[in-house]
């Protein structure tokens, strides 16, 4: 029997065992999922839709790294691209499969923007909206290929 638990190793070297279920939760109609982090990616603000979709309580999210939502199907290269882009002061867009606390997942179209105040980046805002299913289907294939290529290296 295949274990529903997977061990994830993050870019900062930390590890976490997460529950994975092959069950998608639909994006809430008409809403935006909004969060803010500090420069290190630690969550400083999240809106009610973020809390609802993540499955965590507000107090479980504030002060935790944003990668708490990272699904193992997401290629590391996608997040590397995200960080490289926003640290240059630019916006990043992409389709992301997020992991919920209960092991289910949800797809989003994410935009991450640096918060620039008096010329300096003081943190990041991420806004997720309902994605196109056609784009999600493309990304399912693309990310699987990227993960395979990464595993083969």
């Amino acid at each position: 029997m295949i274990s529903p638990f997977v061990q994830l190793i993050y870019h900062d070297g930390t590890m976490r065992e997460v529950l994975i279920k092959n069950e998608e939760i639909p994006f809430p109609e008409g809403k935006l999922i909004v969060s803010r982090t500090d420069l290190a990616g630690i969550i400083t603000h999240c809106n009610p839709s973020f809390i609802e979709m993540s499955g965590y309580q507000h107090e479980e999210l504030i002060g935790r790294p944003h990668h708490i939502l990272r699904h193992p199907d997401m290629p590391a290269a996608a997040f590397q691209d995200l960080w490289d882009t926003i640290q240059q002061g630019k916006q990043w867009h992409g389709y992301v499969k997020n992991l919920r606390k209960d092991g289910c997942f949800y797809w989003v179209y994410a935009t991450v923007i640096p918060n620039i105040r008096d010329g300096s980046i003081i943190g990041y805002t991420s806004v997720r909206r309902k994605p196109s299913r056609a784009k999600v289907q493309e990304c399912i294939q693309l990310y699987a290929q990227m993960n395979e290529a990464g595993a083969a290296v």
């Binding site: 935006l32 909004v34 803010r36 916006q91 935009t111 991450v112 923007i113 918060n115 105040r117 805002t125 806004v127």
Partner: peptide, 13 residues
């Protein structure tokens, strides 16, 4: 206000 403007920026591009 800065927060709202950042949010708007994510929507217009």
């Amino acid at each position: 206000t800065e927060f709202m403007i950042d949010l708007m920026d994510t929507l217009v591009t």
